[in-house]
Design a protein around this nucleic acid. Structure first.
Lengths: 194, 194
DNA sequence: GAGTTTTTTTAGCAGCTGCTACAGAATCTG
DNA sequence: CAGATTCTGTAGCAGCTGCTAAAAAAACTC
């Protein structure tokens, strides 16, 4: 019927995700994106349609890879408390990997430039809710299994964790020894009874 | 000797601060800044020198007004625990005020565009340290007075608070009922023994 | 190979970016 | 008033922004 696509779409999305991840939405120019994606404007607007749509695709891709990996750690142990610690460990381990940018893409999307675009805002909020939903679910199941007391407030605890995590992704850019961060996390989790 | 300055410098800085506060550093254009400041490019580059210098001035101004007010609340009670709650209350009260933007300017400065500029980065880090230093100091004095136990780890607790606060300033943009946030904060403080 | 459909390349658009050069206006001294 | 000095308004620069239009190239059907 017609000419075939020449570039690897998934690969291009992955490259774009990493650039957005590193530099943020509006600080990443289309020219820079095209460069790392290895395509020209024509191909881009033929398949992706706009920068906004690209960001949506990247959020999805990030969710399917990075967030998924972290949440897998959360579910890796029968013990919920250990799972949460494993989750935070994946976050800290990425600090040692110079290849990965330092801020969570989703967390970085809680900024005025991203939230100003309605479509992006909706996507970010729904992914955030799905994310904290995983924590609530996990904590609730720990109450059922008896690992946590029956009067434990799973929803509030999950919200505190998510909020703290947002802060962690910010503070991490500026600080500090890994040991210091680990002590911080341990203090929080102990305080919450986790 | 020469012609006098026509505009109110402090007032102009205040206006610029509010705009940066609302839209972030690199998403605020010089033209928009000049408009709210009520001056032209000539006057601007004569007195302020550059956008970067303006941002430094705004950070200073923010520190002298908003941060100062919040920290005053922290010190307003003899009880340190009550002071911390008063501090968080000032943050929440601003949510009800439609005039003030929703994110802390300092917290919003933990983004790649600001941190990429060395001078801004240094300023942000030093203000952040000064800020958490206030909390550490206050918690230490509570140990002296007997309000907190002698084995309380003030430094770690302060770090958790500051990190959580960073997250709060983000999450607040997207959520949620004030009551929900208040429960979250109460859970955190109780958990930390504060 | 002609015709059709899709992809890619290239050039370019209008608008914005931070910033500068410069003429003119205002305020002082003498 | 002339002269010096500083401030202000205007015009414009080179470079970037997201995006589009149109021609050329590739893959298919018949």
């Amino acid at each position: 019927m017609a000419r075939n696509i020449e570039f690897n779409y998934d690969r291009a999305i992955d490259r774009a995700t990493r650039l957005f991840w590193k530099k943020g939405y509006s600080n990443t120019s289309l020219r820079d994106l095209l460069k790392v994606m290895g395509i020209g404007e024509g191909s881009f607007y033929n398949t992706v349609k706009s920068k906004k749509h690209l960001y949506l695709e990247c959020l999805k891709h990030y969710n399917d890879t990075v967030s998924r990996r972290r949440l897998a750690a959360l579910l890796s142990t029968p013990s919920v408390k250990q799972g949460i610690r494993a989750f935070f460990k994946t976050v800290l381990d990425e600090l040692d990997d110079p290849r990965t940018p330092r801020v969570c893409l989703l967390s970085g999307s809680l900024s005025s430039d991203v939230l100003a675009e309605r479509e992006l805002q909706r996507c970010v909020i729904s992914e955030m809710n799905a994310f904290s939903g995983m924590f609530i679910e996990r904590l609730e199941s720990a109450k059922q299994s008896g690992e946590l007391p029956k009067d434990f407030d799973a929803e509030v605890a999950a919200q505190v964790l998510v909020t703290y995590l947002q802060g962690l992704f910010r503070v991490i850019r500026v600080l500090q020894s890994r040991a210091q961060v680990e002590r911080q996390i341990a203090a929080l989790l102990n305080g919450l009874g986790l």
